[in-house]
Amino acid sequence: MIPAQFDYQAPATLEEAVSLLASDLDGAKILAGGHSLIPAMKLRLAQPQLLVDIGRIKSLAYIREEGDEILIGATTTHYQLESSDLLQRICPLLPDCAKSIGDVQVRNKGTIGGSLAHADPAADWPAAVLALGAELVLVGPKAERTVKAEDFFVDLFTTDLQPGEILREIRIKKPSGRFGQSYQKAPHPASGFAVVGIAVHLGLNDDGSCKAAAIGVTGVDVKAYRAKGVEAALSGTTIDDDAIAQASLHVCDGVDPNSDLYASSEYRGQLARVHMRRAIQAAKAKAQ
């Protein structure tokens, strides 16, 4: 519970942060809300040499509309997302997901960018950004690049972020037309992390049938993933109870669900199917 020695820098700009990070590619870590990194440091499981605190760069925390996109700065806290009237109006999945994270203290400090970059297999945000088809803007010493959420999560705690890169912004196409969204979660009673978390964005045709579904799943595999099998099965249907139930069965296609002390692989699979069905139903209800 007492971390090893480390250096600490609080740059005023993102450019400065990038160059600090480049000064020690192996030993430097970005600190945002600190709610994943600091516990690991206190256990000495993580022993970075240098913490580059981007949490004090004010210009990195924002939620705004630009053209047909929603732009979210990396250090925007869970609470800011939870309480955003704008998001509540145009993309309620984000506040819905935010309010399920941890507790008040965690939501006040923890950031969306930190959570995505940490890529905890049971974190909530990865499911939401997958369901929203988000793009992540990564800035490195030489250039900036954009990665699709789907390509961002590589493995357990492993993302496409290259050494020296910082996640700067999350970009989401403003949902349009008739749509409904929902985040359903089975939280672990101790950690609050998702034993299973399902984020659903459901686009509907005028006749109420499913135009397109985009679904992110967290907690089930070593990384968050798109439930393509469910999406495909749902597409074009009238989204009646039967279609939903049938589609939901595909949530673990190609995945061997995680197993731990709280939930076996078999039970986690069951939770995934049930919460998938409930999430689709809730999303549909909101689209009416």
């Binding site: 507790d103 672990h188 009673p189 101790a190 950690s191 992390f193 002390l261």
Partner: peptide, 21 residues
Amino acid sequence: VVYDEQGQLVTGTLMDYAVPR
């Protein structure tokens, strides 16, 4: 409180040991 067969305490933090909230 769970110890595994080797006597390792596997509910070693409040992330795993669930105190009601």
